[in-house]
Design a protein around this nucleic acid. Structure first.
Lengths: 198, 198
DNA sequence: ACTGATTCATACGGGCTGTATCTATTGCCC
DNA sequence: GGGCAATAGATACAGCCCGTATGAATCAGT
């Protein structure tokens, strides 16, 4: 199969990305061989190293894609709410549920941190940045108490990710999901200027 | 160097563990070769595979050790406080600072999750279990609102870990540490039965 | 149509992991 | 105290995987 039109070239990149996303999600980054992965995509490692540089580069591209999608899905939730505070709470809850999806859990929350570094400078940027903006707005509106929005966003985001692992290890996670959501509600109300009114 | 007394055997294990702890902390798990590691300990891989089974087993033992030490250090803090709630807050703050230490950050928070699994069933158990017990007591005393202690502990623990990465990436993390601690204080007060009184 | 650049395949070298084998010493039991 | 099983740990081996270097085929521009 040797086709090299401009369209076919971008198709190659997309195929590689989609295959990597699937295989990384199933087997994890470390247990995935680049020979197997490219073979499943009907290509060889030559294409991969040309488009993504190395294995880490491929993972970074996958994480970038997942993060962008996740952020879009979350914005659809927090954007529709009438009340800004309620929209924020809904978004947190929605993230907790999305963090249960095997793809996000394994690729973004497990492998990406170890391979790409602690803070994930480029990727996973959108989700946290969006949450930070939401918080910032709430502070401006006088709903949330004065604090660094970034610190708050990270505190919440990290907590949700950790809790998601705990929920996901249970066969029927519905009980734990409810418990996690309830506990989340408690912590979130502390951010309010008037915590008692929640 | 062939010495095989019972004492020397345990010394071998301890040497391997200490070397692994140092090298994993410096270079990270993935970039550490077992040949190099054992050579630095004055041994060969034969000893390593005999005592720990495989590379993951060695990491698990290191994490176990670090977690136990961390828990002891934290208990020393929360145990001395007069007020149980204040002791709990101090412990959270202390954990935030300890999560800045390169050894804990790289080995426990970065590599361990990816290599050993999301929830770290055995290791890292002590720290969270202790925090869970503290929360449980506070709920029993009517200080903290009714909620699942485990979910609360994970929410806080995960948030602190994530925030620690953000603090550590800054050269002088004192500003961010203060911001993180302030944001933490907000979230924690939400747990109280009477959040306004904090 | 010719030239340079690009896409992707193939071939190669090096390193790392895990296992199997082997030796020597230790502890146990008589 | 001597023989024997068990174990600590070194050495050798096979296999896998990654990254790079090389090469061929096609596309773009003039």
């Amino acid at each position: 199969m040797v086709r090299r039109t401009r369209a076919a070239m971008e198709a190659t990149r997309a195929t590689l990305l989609a295959t990597a996303r699937r295989v990384f999600g199933e087997r994890g980054y470390a247990d995935t061989s680049m020979d197997d992965l490219t073979a499943q995509a009907g290509l060889t490692r030559g294409a991969l190293y040309h488009h993504f540089g190395d294995k880490k580069g491929l993972l970074a591209a996958v994480v970038e894609q997942i993060d962008a999608e996740t952020d879009l899905r979350l914005q659809a939730i927090s954007g529709t709410a009438e009340d800004a505070w309620q929209g924020f709470c809904d978004r947190c809850r929605a993230y907790l549920e999305m963090a249960l999806e095997p793809e996000i859990q394994r690729i973004v929350l497990r492998d990406a941190r170890a391979v790409l570094g602690g803070t994930l400078p480029n990727s996973q940027r959108h989700c946290i940045a969006s949450m930070q903006r939401l918080i910032d707005n709430l502070i401006q509106q006088g709903v949330v108490a004065q604090a660094d929005p970034r610190a708050l966003a990270l505190l919440i985001y990290g907590g949700l990710a950790e809790t998601a692992f705990w929920i996901a290890e249970e066969d029927d996670g519905n009980v734990r999901l409810a418990q996690g959501a309830a506990a989340l509600k408690l912590l979130l109300r502390g951010m309010l200027v008037e915590p008692g009114s929640s």
